[in-house]
Simulated assay, not measured.
Amino acid sequence: MHAWEQIQKTVDYIEEHISEEIKIETLAQLASLSQFYYQRLFCRLVKKPVNEYIKLRRLARASEALFNREEKILDIALDFGFSSHEIFTRNFKSAFGMTPEEFRSKPVRLNNYVKPQLLLNYTLVDENVPLITDGIILEITRKRITAPQYFAGLTAEEPIEQMPGGGGTGIDTLGALWDSFHAAKAGIPGIQPDGAELGVTFPGTRKGCYRYFAGAEAVPGSDSGDFTDWVLREGEYIVCHFEAEDFEHLVMDAVYKAHRYLFETWLPNHSMNVSPFAAERYPSHSPDTTSMEIWVKPV
């Protein structure tokens, strides 16, 4: 068994026993490692110490449960391994900047720590060969566009450390940006009502920051006024297509795993450099949407 398989086994165990007391000793035995080497290997592969990872996954699962207003917050805390309301509240506020009560009364999208699928770090698929793993289907292809494609929308800039899926916690500001775009979409000149939507990550104007564009297809040559324009230039692109069971899993889980696989595994193993942007292409943000694509341009 490969080292990553031993750690993945314990990651799966943690998820299945998230509401129970989880001891390092139990996890190390499951991985057939000493506690010392298990903790070193876990931190190396998952990028978090074991106990910190368990806490973050408990907070992620608890934050989802808070949407059920019929369940008491204390019961949710106990269900996900927190020994008291006070401890749950302290950890929740430290991670997200608000109490569970504040989140429940005024829900926002959160950056939660996603359960890793370590297989994606060690599996190299060929082009046009689908990979099925951990509830997602992923495939790498090439596409060529022969004419520029135009988009109009909104742009935000924030510290790289707050990037969703990067391992940090807090409020999902990109989700708020998409909400703002959809609220304004009908009034943006030139927007094509049934056109694709595009989210683009690209370099920021300040050190340690990145920018993100959220928009939709626009009629070529239209004046978008005070809104931001983005052009997907003609040429060949590497496209990572992926699917999930529903829209929430698509945008809150699968997209981060697909990004990581494309940029940390597939592109480096093909010695391929790309332009400094990644475009997430959605048919729409409808709850019925279960697939999307990440587009990058080889250089």
Rank of each mutant, 00 (worst) to 15 (best):
G153Q: 08
E25R: 13
M272A: 02
G215N: 05
R58A: 07
Q29H: 05
V125S: 13
E70I: 00
D134W: 02
H241S: 15
E25C: 00
L78N: 10
Y150T: 04
Q29D: 15
E70Q: 14
I136V: 08
H249Q: 15
M292F: 00
V299I: 15
A244W: 07
F80S: 06
Y113I: 15
A244E: 10
C43L: 08
N121M: 07
Q162I: 00
R69L: 07
G195D: 07
T146Q: 11
V108D: 04
I7K: 02
I18C: 06
D194Y: 03
V255K: 06
P268N: 04
L250F: 08
C209S: 11
A244N: 03
I171V: 15
H85Y: 15
A62F: 08
M163K: 05
Y53R: 01
A65G: 08
R57K: 09
F82Y: 14
Q35K: 15
D172Y: 06
R61Q: 09
T173K: 09
V114H: 03
Y212M: 07
P189Q: 08
F82M: 05
H85E: 13
W178P: 01
E217G: 03
T169H: 02
T133L: 00
V125M: 14
A95C: 08
R40D: 11
H241A: 13
L124E: 12
D79R: 15
D126F: 00
I73L: 10
E86V: 10
G168T: 06
I188D: 09
K93C: 06
I22W: 01
R281E: 12
V239S: 03
F67M: 10
